[in-house]
């Protein structure tokens, strides 16, 4: 019976959706900038999984190309974002986003 179970692209899409949901939950519920950043990485990776699964389902390599570009953008984002976190930490001695409220009116 278990031999007849086929893993369809829908399974991967569902897994990616759950992963995206966990990531967005972490982004919304945590207040440490580093943890929020890692949650964003989770969301990006969930989208990457849908891209790769769709590339196989449609027989189109464009999905894998898109993943490579997402990887490049994510790497650039990590470099700049972590530099911002470090620079904020040097001036404010905190990584909690709740304490950064100068811009709120």
């Amino acid at each position: 019976m278990i031999e007849s179970v086929v893993v369809t692209p829908g399974w991967y899409m569902t897994l990616a959706a759950v992963l995206f949901l966990i990531g967005s939950g972490g982004l919304l519920l945590r207040n440490n900038a580093l943890v929020m950043f890692m949650s964003v990485e989770l969301m990006l990776n969930a989208v990457n999984l849908t891209f790769v699964a769709a590339a196989r389902a449609h027989g189109d390599i464009g999905g894998q190309m898109a993943v490579l570009f997402v990887l490049v953008v994510a790497a650039a984002e990590v470099a700049v974002g972590l530099a911002i976190i470090v620079s904020i930490f040097r001036t404010r001695r905190t990584a909690s986003v709740d304490e950064l409220s100068e811009l709120s009116g």
Binding site: V73, A75, A76, E77, A83
Partner: peptide, 16 residues
């Protein structure tokens, strides 16, 4: 992406 990476690297260095 090459432009993006250069801008990101320069930005990170400037922030550091």
């Amino acid at each position: 992406t090459s432009l993006l990476l250069i801008v990101a690297a320069v930005g990170a260095i400037a922030l550091a």
